[in-house]
Amino acid sequence: MDPATAPSKIEIRSLTMAYGDFVVMRDIDVRIRAGEVFVIMGGSGCGKSTLLKHMIGLKAPAAGGVYYDGQSYWDADEAGRLALRRRLGVMFQQGALWSSLTLAENVALPLEAFSGLGPADIRELARVKLALVGLRGFEEYLPAEISGGMRKRAALARALALDPEILLFDEPSAGLDPVSARRLDDLLLELRDSLGATLVVVSHELASIFAIADHAIFLDPETRRVRAEGNPRDLMRGSEDPRVREFLTRGSG
């Protein structure tokens, strides 16, 4: 499917995010098309992760809403929300693997709860998901027994557990060495291409942003609005906005 003409998978409509009285961002309007890699970028503390939390249902908007295939998440009842959430795969910043479960059990838990499959099928699926992220042979390890980069990949395997249509990542390559970060980016693109998933990525790693993003927004903590929107390469070359250019060129442009 050509991303340019694809219908929008996720829409954020005039979303205002706030903690109590403190407004983090206002009037965010975003359309994310099916099969696209969409990157939310901005400096530290500008509300990138908060926006992600609004999208996955962990934090309610102060105003506005999030729509999946035209269906409002926040207006749905609890059952509707659960059904929508099940179409999302989320990878948290620190991995957030359940530390008392082995890697295979981490991947298997959502399958056991939601897929209705038998134990043998679930075991095979967990195995293949871990193999996809390069963790064959580590099924019986606890998260504490493997390295940070492996934990990130295991978290990705868990996000993939239910074959979600939409994958959301909070800083997937943060804390990884450049080679591992690059491999993870390639893996994300490969998964998008072969599974046809839509990817939403929160990131401030420039190399990763340029490598994977089809479309991006730049959040500005000063005006508390979306400052720029578009393909990051175009933004770097063509943006009139000095702050966006500064971000995308690490302050040297």
Binding site: A131, L132, G134, L135, R136, L187, E190, D193, S194
Partner: peptide
């Protein structure tokens, strides 16, 4: 392609 990916790391 996914199979190749799963096989990539021994």
């Amino acid at each position: 392609r996914l199979l190749r990916l799963a096989r990539a790391v021994p």
